[in-house]
Simulated scan of single mutants.
Amino acid sequence: MLLIRFLIISICILYIIRSLMRYLIPALFQSVINKAQQQAQQQQSYQRRKPEGAIKVDYIPEGRKSRLPDSEGEFVDYEEVK
């Protein structure tokens, strides 16, 4: 008798939980999807404000203002293989 009562109560509880999850899980996923969409829109709006190809240098160190001539660069000898 006790086992049958336990099984009936367990089945009822599982059925109630299953019914609730049918409504709660889609609502939870919808909120996650809405947050992801908002973040994507914020990233797109940030990218739109920044013109493509524009470079801004905020700081140039004191010792780096002079530029090396082209003859001072690194050169690697090579042989063409036919």
Rank of each mutant, 00 (worst) to 15 (best):
R48I: 00
I60L: 10
F75S: 11
L20V: 05
I55M: 06
L3P: 01
V81S: 02
Q30D: 12
I11F: 04
G73D: 08
R22Q: 10
E62K: 08
Q44I: 03
S19P: 02
K65D: 01
G73C: 06
P51G: 02
G63V: 13
A36R: 04
I13T: 11
M1W: 08
Y15N: 14
R5P: 00
K65E: 15
P26C: 00
P69C: 03
K35S: 13
S10I: 02
L2V: 14
Q42Y: 04
I16R: 10
R18K: 10
Y59G: 00
V76M: 07
L20G: 11
V57K: 05
K50V: 14
D58G: 14
Y46Q: 15
V81T: 01
K50R: 11
V76C: 07
C12H: 01
Y15R: 10
L2E: 15
V81L: 15
I9V: 11
E62H: 09
I13Q: 02
L20P: 01
V32P: 00
E52N: 03
E80L: 14
L68S: 04
V81D: 09
D77S: 11
Q39W: 07
L20E: 11
F75W: 01
A54G: 00
Y23G: 04
Y46L: 15
S19A: 14
C12F: 07
M21G: 04
F29I: 10
G53Q: 01
P69L: 12
I13D: 00
S45Q: 15
P69K: 13
Y15S: 15
I55H: 08
Q44V: 14
Q43F: 03
R48S: 07
I17C: 10
P26A: 00
P51I: 01
G53D: 00
Q47N: 14
R18L: 08
E62A: 10
Y15A: 15
S45W: 06
N34L: 07
K56N: 12
I9Y: 07
F75N: 01
I55G: 01
A54N: 07
K56D: 07
G53C: 02
V81H: 08
Y23I: 09
E79P: 01
R48C: 05
L14W: 08
F75G: 02
Y15E: 11
Q47R: 12
G73R: 12
E72R: 06
C12R: 05
P51C: 01
K35Q: 09
E74P: 03
I13E: 03
I25L: 05
L3M: 09
Y59P: 00
Y46P: 03
I8M: 14
R18V: 03
V57R: 03
P26L: 01
L2M: 13
R49S: 04
A40Y: 09
G63Q: 15
F75C: 02
M21H: 06
R49I: 05
Q42T: 05
E80Y: 06
E52T: 00
K50C: 04
